[in-house]
Amino acid sequence: MKTVLKGIGVVGLILYPCVVGYGLSQGYMFWVAVFLMIMGGLRWVSGGNTLMWPLTLFAILCGGLSLLFKDQAWLKLYPVLMSMGAFCIFTMTLFKPPSMIERFARLIEPDLPHDGVIWTKKVTQIWCVFFVVNAVIALYTVYFASTKMWVIYNGLISYVLMGILLLGEYLLRKRQQRLNQMQH
């Protein structure tokens, strides 16, 4: 049951920018805030990795502050806080290894060679830069762009960029591993 709740929470938070765009355009700020708090609550009760708890709390916080101050900007700030939270989590793993990308890489390749560990640490640093840039752009869309542009960036473009970075890292790591094997 916890897995189902976790899945619903994750899908809900991924679709969040679209829910915000539609909800705000229809005047449903209250319901969007409640939705965000429920999605955060689902992630909270489903447990999981304690590294992700701050990201879960951001959902509840943004929804609650939006209701408290009757301000939709708090709903739009959620992706900004997510990026900054991810930046903090990824950065923390640089100081308390394994790095975040090494953790992901070991899901596919449990016997990651030493060169792979070095590689994934560098890629984790790249992800840290990405999250800061993403947060700045997302923040810009909160205050200086239309809700439609906010949805396009936070609900599409940022996801595409993350996908490109993830796929690019995987392909380059495999290429690097082949080159290292040829040298040995």
Rank of each mutant, 00 (worst) to 15 (best):
F87Y: 11
P17M: 11
T124R: 06
T3G: 10
L24Y: 02
K174H: 09
L24K: 01
N49W: 10
L139G: 12
V151I: 11
W150G: 06
I14M: 02
M92C: 03
T93W: 00
C18Q: 11
F87A: 06
Y153T: 05
E102T: 05
P113F: 08
V10D: 09
A135F: 01
G116T: 01
L68Q: 14
M52D: 14
L179N: 14
L156S: 11
F90N: 02
W74Q: 06
M39K: 06
I157M: 10
I89L: 15
S99N: 01
Q125I: 05
L65W: 08
L139Y: 15
W44S: 09
F95V: 07
H184R: 14
G85Y: 00
Y28L: 15
G168Y: 04
G155R: 15
I157V: 15
G27N: 05
K174M: 13
V10S: 09
K122H: 09
I60A: 05
W119E: 08
A105F: 00
V136Q: 01
T141V: 08
S25T: 08
G168C: 00
I8W: 05
S46F: 00
G41T: 02
L51T: 07
W150P: 08
A145T: 04
C128G: 01
F104V: 10
I164L: 13
G63R: 00
V132A: 01
L107D: 11
Y28R: 06
S25N: 14
T56S: 14
L172M: 13
M29E: 12
M1N: 06
Q183S: 04
W74P: 02
R106I: 06
L77W: 10
I137A: 08
L42D: 06
Y170C: 08
C62H: 08
N49R: 12
A86F: 04
Q125F: 09
G7A: 12
M29W: 02
G41C: 01
P110C: 07
R103L: 07
L81A: 02
C128L: 00
L167V: 13
L139W: 14
F131E: 01
K148T: 10
Y16E: 06
G168E: 05
G23E: 02
G40K: 04
Y78K: 00
L107F: 08
V4G: 08
M182D: 10
S83D: 13
I60V: 05
S146Q: 04
L42P: 06
H114P: 08
V160F: 09
V160D: 07
W127H: 01
V117Q: 14
V20H: 00
Q26P: 02
P113R: 15
T147D: 12
F104S: 01
L65V: 02
T124G: 03
K122W: 00
N134S: 09
I101E: 02
M39D: 04
R43Q: 12
V160N: 13
G7R: 06
R175Y: 15
I8L: 13
I126P: 03
K122A: 03
V19K: 01
V151N: 07
W31M: 08
I118D: 13
L139C: 14
Q181G: 13
V34R: 08
R173K: 15
D111K: 11
F35S: 08
F90V: 04
L13D: 01
K121V: 03
M92T: 09
I126M: 11
Q183R: 15
Y78W: 10
G40N: 07
L13M: 15
W127S: 09
K2I: 04
